[in-house]
């Protein structure tokens, strides 16, 4: 009996349960907002909240895809390159259509999503079939497709896109509908589908999952396809917002993407994370951006603050992982 007591894990305290909660960051975001609202002119106005929402949606879509990969125990560094490549390819497709009506928009969006899925699938295949580390595969994909986007356009931006397409990123109701649809579907996949259960199982322990009959390789490929699709949809929204196919679209977004997922509770060790928590992470990052931006802070200050927060989140993740392992 005395031995049992000695080796039993300590009863987790309230702070520890809170730290482990998927919604911890949502609470922090709410408190952050309430704490700063009186001090920042325009921060709590409907107009700014609308801006905040509009700015968050493209990041949410791509970070949700990244979360899927992190749950599976991988990482996708190629998302920003996928965004750039799909932005210019989609823009070129739409520009070459004989008319700029709805058909051009549908074709362009389909091409962008298709490319995103194919690149994501290629990443997944390289990781599973060639047994290459996800970091190396997606890093080289990032280099290749970043270069490809610049090469195809010779650094030129492509504008004159269809109005319907621009509305997808430029008008909040359209952006919101597209984002909620995608993220809702992803949330359903993770929580309700067999694929979701397999994904968590692979992330927790791929060997055990394989022994248990989970098609590990297929699940991993699926995760990267979803990440590619998320990046492509984010590209649709940002390209529409800027009304321009941009060969360097999203070049500086990777820190925010991974940061939002990790701050939201996704683990670099796999097996942990969900779309709602990632949404909280996105909200927090964008709150930081927005509040400091309204204060007129320099971009470098914002980067320093965000870097510290992401480091804190990664530390918390590591701590949590050790606590779980100890239990």
């Amino acid at each position: 009996m005395s031995l049992d007591v000695a080796i039993a894990p300590p009863h987790p305290g309230r702070w520890r349960r809170l730290l482990g909660s998927d919604y911890f960051i949502l609470l922090i975001s709410a408190l952050y907002f309430l704490a700063l609202a009186p001090f920042i002119p325009g921060f709590a106005t409907p107009e700014n909240l609308r801006n905040l929402l509009a700015n968050s949606l493209p990041l949410l879509v791509v970070a949700a895809g990244q979360t899927v990969v992190l749950i599976a125990g991988g990482i996708d560094l190629s998302v920003t390159a996928i965004m750039a490549a799909t932005s210019v390819q989609g823009a070129l497709v739409m520009q070459r259509m004989p008319n700029h009506g709805l058909l051009a928009t549908v074709t362009g969006v389909a091409a962008m999503l298709g490319i995103g899925a194919v690149v994501g699938g290629g990443n997944g295949m390289a990781i599973t079939r060639l047994r290459m580390p996800p970091f190396i595969v997606t890093l080289t994909a990032m280099m290749f497709f970043s270069g490809f986007a610049v090469w195809v356009t010779q650094s030129q931006k492509i504008n004159g896109l269809p109005e319907d397409f621009n509305n997808l990123g430029g008008k909040l109701p359209f952006t919101l509908a597209a984002s909620l649809l995608a993220v809702g579907l992803l949330g359903w996949l993770l929580r309700r589908s067999l694929f979701g259960a397999w994904l968590y199982a692979v992330g927790h322990n791929p060997r055990t999952a394989r022994v248990s009959g989970v098609p590990v390789d297929g699940v991993l490929v699926g995760a990267y396809v979803l990440s590619g699709l998320g990046a492509a949809l984010a590209s649709v929204l940002l390209t529409g917002q800027g009304e321009t196919g941009d060969p360097v679209l999203g070049r500086y977004l990777l820190l925010d993407v991974i940061g939002a997922s990790v701050i939201g509770g996704a683990s670099f060790f796999g097996g942990r994370g969900n779309v709602l928590s990632t949404a909280a992470g996105v909200l927090f990052i964008k709150l930081i951006d927005n509040s400091l931006g309204l204060l007129g802070s320099s971009h470098f200050t914002i980067m320093m603050v965000k870097g510290c927060l992401i480091l804190a989140a990664a530390l918390a993740d590591s701590l949590r992982h050790r606590l779980v392992a100890a239990n």
Partner: peptide
Amino acid sequence: AIADGDAN
């Protein structure tokens, strides 16, 4: 406001 090269 400095965008550090990011149009978005």
